[in-house]
């Protein structure tokens, strides 16, 4: 019989090798697969997305911007664009590179899959928020249209992705983005810049100098007669109304965070009562629906009844039933102190 010590050593060595080979995300196999990702299909699809994106933002794409977007060399990019041209997906003229209607519908298909997948990750997988986009960037190239449709059907045909962007329909329709001038946005509201008017040039260059580009997210701090203060990507910015009117935004529904004012359900101690005010928007999809179905709606009286080890989960009395909820979810349920009048 083989010496047990020797056998053990071999076994450890073997598992070590296997781990190096197949370790998720970092193993040799995973790295190899990632490297292989840059196939021509991926390059084509990413180019189309880039062109579509620029078109939407009324910016002119260039060979350089494409090369930068794909992180490949300019020579490769030229070849790629030629290939796209021969496929009838783009046209190039003196005006630059332009996407054809076919190319646009191809791009929209990819965007649909991308946003559907983000929605799926957000609603049904509990993958971290920061990873949605990256995973969707990969997935969008490998899912077939049929699979995507099945996924959409199963999720109840979502129309928005978790960032609030509309998901194009199967036929490539997206809602017309009817932008409004930045001046019309009310205090405290959120919007996304969709268009920066390039005429007259004096105003345009001023806006560009301020660093305002389509795609940025803004929040109005306050509007006065002769100036508008707003926050853009975390920085404060001030514009005269004349200038601000040349920036077009679409209002977006950014959750009005109620965190600061209200305590969360997880702060309730055993035996204490409180009234539900709402569920954070970060709790989405089936999880949110499930909580609401169980009676976690604004106005419901809840009592903390039982605590499991480490106070997670805690069982609450909600509309007569004892329901155990994990801390992570209880954190997302906001409550306020309960007063007698509230009850009726």
């Amino acid at each position: 019989m083989i010496d047990p010590l020797f056998a053990l050593l071999i076994a450890f060595a073997l598992s070590g090798i296997l781990a190096v080979l197949f370790w998720p995300a970092k193993g040799i196999y995973a790295t190899y697969k990632k490297a292989k990702r840059n196939t021509s299909r991926v390059l084509i699809e990413d180019t189309l997305k880039h062109l579509y994106d620029y078109e939407e933002r009324t910016v002119r794409p260039t060979l350089r911007s494409i090369a930068g977007h794909l992180s490949i060399g300019v020579d490769d990019t030229i070849q790629l664009v030629e290939k796209l041209q021969s496929m009838g997906l783009v046209e190039s003229s003196q005006d630059g590179i332009q996407i054809t209607p076919q190319g646009r519908s191809y791009a929209l298909r990819i965007i649909r899959i991308h946003r559907l997948w983000e929605r799926y990750l957000a609603d049904e997988t509990s993958v971290k928020e920061t990873e949605w986009h990256l995973e969707a960037e990969e997935k969008e190239h490998s899912i077939s249209v049929e699979e995507a449709e099945a996924l959409a059907a199963q999720m109840g045909n979502p129309v928005f992705d978790p960032h609030g962007d509309p998901i194009p329909t199967k036929d490539g329709e997206v809602p017309k983005r009817n932008g409004v001038p930045l001046t019309t946005l009310k205090n405290g509201k959120f919007g996304r810049i969709i268009h920066v008017e390039d005429e007259p040039h004096a105003i345009y260059s001023q806006l560009i100098a301020q660093g305002l580009y389509p795609g940025m997210q803004v929040r109005i701090i306050n509007t006065e007669k002769n100036r508008i203060r707003f926050e853009v990507n975390g920085e404060e910015c001030v514009l005269a109304p004349l200038f601000a009117a040349n920036v077009h935004v679409i209002p977006i529904q950014k959750q009005e965070e109620i965190t600061s004012e209200f305590k969360s359900l997880s702060s309730l101690r055993k035996g204490e009562k409180a009234v539900v005010v709402g569920i954070s928007k970060a709790c989405r999809g089936p999880q949110r629906r499930r909580l609401m179905d169980l009676g976690v709606v604004p106005g419901t009286l809840v009592t903390a009844e039982l605590e499991s080890i480490g106070r997670d989960p805690v069982a609450f009395n909600i509309k007569g039933a004892t329901i155990a909820i994990r801390k992570k979810n209880a954190d997302q349920i906001y409550i306020k102190e309960f007063s007698q009048e509230e009850l009726n």
Binding site: Q154, G156, P286, R289, R290, D293, L294
Partner: peptide
């Protein structure tokens, strides 16, 4: 079922 609107 708690509701007819969910999807399990």
């Amino acid at each position: 079922t708690y509701s007819l609107l969910s999807t399990s």
